[in-house]
């Protein structure tokens, strides 16, 4: 359940694109996200949702303003340190699954944990099976990622985002390619992650039902938070 523990905080984030003309994509974006919260970002196409998410993800560092994740100031950190933060604390789900086609589903899920290096290979394998189990994919574990259906692939990518038990899972239109049945499955998983496992979900979405059923929705328009 939503607690008062802060996991992410932005203050006056603004970002420009200079190509082809100077253009302010994000303008004075400030909000706070709490532990166990299922937050959705909505807004018209081109309003800057993805751009904001990439800023929050620590992958895009070219913005002004302050970003704090788990009490740590992100601004000015080295690229390698940011990679470590993402590895430990942030999971990603995109519209496209971005699974490595030559690896099994299981291995795809395991990779971020193997990179983390905190557990032995066998332990990581066991954890990966658990995550796949949660997503109803245990029996697909050893298939190559390229041999699964779109919905299955998306669920594998969610399992991958979960493998290191990150505090935050960030999603850019995670259900954009899915039918309503799969969308519901994904929604339920997110809800469960937030409410049962106390993880934080920040999801960009175009799906009004999806947003409406989340804990809180932030609406962007022309790079500004309007709601």
């Amino acid at each position: 359940m939503k607690s008062n523990e802060l996991v992410l905080k932005t203050q006056n984030i603004e970002k420009y694109f200079y190509d082809p003309i100077q253009f302010k994509v994000l303008d004075n974006v400030s909000f706070e996200v709490y532990k166990g919260e299922f937050l959705t970002l909505v807004g018209k196409s081109g309003s800057g949702k993805s751009t904001l998410l990439y800023c929050l993800s620590t992958m895009d560092t070219k913005f002004n303003g302050d970003l704090e994740i788990l009490g740590e100031k992100i601004n000015g950190k080295k690229i390698d340190d940011l990679a470590e933060i993402r590895n430990q604390h942030i999971g990603f789900v995109f519209q496209f699954h971005y699974l490595l086609p030559e690896f099994s589903c299981l291995k795809n899920v395991m990779l971020p944990a193997l990179k983390l290096g905190k557990y032995t290979y066998e332990e990581v394998e066991e954890k990966a099976y658990q995550k796949l189990d949660i997503l109803g994919l245990r029996d697909q574990a050893l298939k190559p990622a390229s041999k699964l259906s779109g919905g299955q692939q998306q669920r594998v990518s969610i399992a991958r985002a979960m493998i290191n038990n990150p505090q935050i899972i960030m999603c850019d239109e995670p259900t954009g390619n899915l039918d309503s049945k799969n969308t519901n499955i994904v929604f339920d998983i997110f809800k469960q992650l937030a409410h049962d496992f106390n993880q934080t979900i920040i999801a960009v979405t175009h799906d009004n039902d999806f947003a409406a059923n989340s804990d809180r929705t932030i609406e962007l328009a022309d790079g500004r938070v309007i709601n």
Binding site: S57, M59, I79, A83, N87, Y98, L111, L116, R160
Partner: peptide, 16 residues
């Protein structure tokens, strides 16, 4: 290039 992008997103460093 997609694989490289997701590896970097999930915490692989440049030197990796």
């Amino acid at each position: 290039i997609n694989d490289i992008a997701i590896l970097k997103a999930t915490g692989f460093k440049s030197k990796d």
